[in-house]
């Protein structure tokens, strides 16, 4: 990601954000992964997954549970190895976890022993960012997620949504090339959830980040995504790539706007059909 530039950040209005470019940021080519079970036979969890995410794009991996979307994300993070295939970020192969690919998990990952400020500074501390710069950058991102009042608080005083905001600020402050999110709002209640989704959109606008996100929430995917990779299961592969073109490349700030747009209902219906076709094995009628 670009180096943080306080002045530009402060001046940038939502409309001034550069739209997704044509530069490929992340590229997966024929990625497969099989697990070995104790009996000896290998189970193919992911098969021939290929897709490309462009710079400054929000790409969502959507699909029924068990389709391996989290496994794909974890391979991008470098936390798991593919059995075959290629994963490239900015043209370089992914060989392990790195600061370039910061991940936000569904489970809360705030460090209990650090304050909000220290939590957000943590990644930069690992990477030896000078203290003054660290403090300043942390302050900026804490403000971005609306937690300035809680900078000195320990995580135990925070609600679930606030803990996720700390995790997002911590990852962004570390300046990753791509932000990975594994069902980041899955543990939150409905109201906090859409507030967080709207917050995400404002962050995307002001921080120019490429995001790869996993979810099984259709509405969330349509609201956030510039590109949706719909995955099917047994084995997990990309079933369909969906561009929510009805948004006309615009990024929405409020969920109400989404519901008002022509084409939203059709897309949601389409994805629901895909989901239902995939869920057939679990829900026999």
């Amino acid at each position: 990601m670009n180096m943080l530039d306080e002045d530009r950040m402060a001046q940038s209005s939502p409309s001034a954000c550069p739209p997704p470019t044509d530069t490929p940021k992340l590229r997966l080519a024929n990625v497969s992964k099989s697990f070995h079970v104790p009996r000896g036979e290998a189970i193919e969890a992911i098969k021939d997954v290929s897709f490309t995410t462009l710079e400054n794009e929000v790409c969502v991996l959507l699909g029924p549970s068990g389709c391996g979307k989290s496994t794909v994300l974890r391979m991008v993070a470098g936390l798991e190895q593919p059995s075959s295939g290629e994963l490239m970020l900015d043209g370089c192969p992914i060989t392990g976890p790195s600061q370039e690919r910061g991940m936000v998990f569904q489970a809360y990952t705030s460090f209990d022993w650090l304050t909000v400020q220290q939590n957000v500074e943590y990644g930069m501390r690992l990477n030896h960012v000078p203290k003054a710069q660290r403090r300043e950058r942390a302050r900026h991102f804490i403000e971005l997620v609306g937690l300035s009042r809680f900078a000195g608080a320990y995580p135990r005083h925070l609600s679930g949504g606030m803990k996720q905001r700390v995790a997002i600020a911590r990852t962004l402050a570390n300046e990753p090339a791509i932000l990975l999110m594994d069902e980041p709002f899955g543990a939150l209640d409905a109201q906090t959830r859409w507030q967080m989704q709207e917050l995400m959109m404002s962050i995307v606008e002001s921080a120019n980040t490429t995001i790869l996100m996993v979810t099984h929430d259709i509405e969330e995917a349509i609201f956030l995504a510039d590109r949706i990779e719909f995955m099917s299961r047994h084995p997990g592969r990309v079933h369909e790539e969906i561009i929510p073109s009805f948004k006309q490349g615009r990024r929405l700030r409020h969920k109400e706007e989404l519901i008002g747009l022509a084409g939203y209902g059709d897309l949601e219906r389409h994805i629901l059909h895909l989901m239902r076709a995939q869920g057939g094995e679990d829900f026999e009628h």
């Binding site: 910061g102 991940m103 489970a107 990952t109 460090f111 943590y122 501390r125």
Partner: peptide, 20 residues
Amino acid sequence: ELIETAMTLGGQRWQILWTV
């Protein structure tokens, strides 16, 4: 998740041992 978070923030093995 705590350890993996530190890994994706760029933590080295001993850094993670000490700080997480």
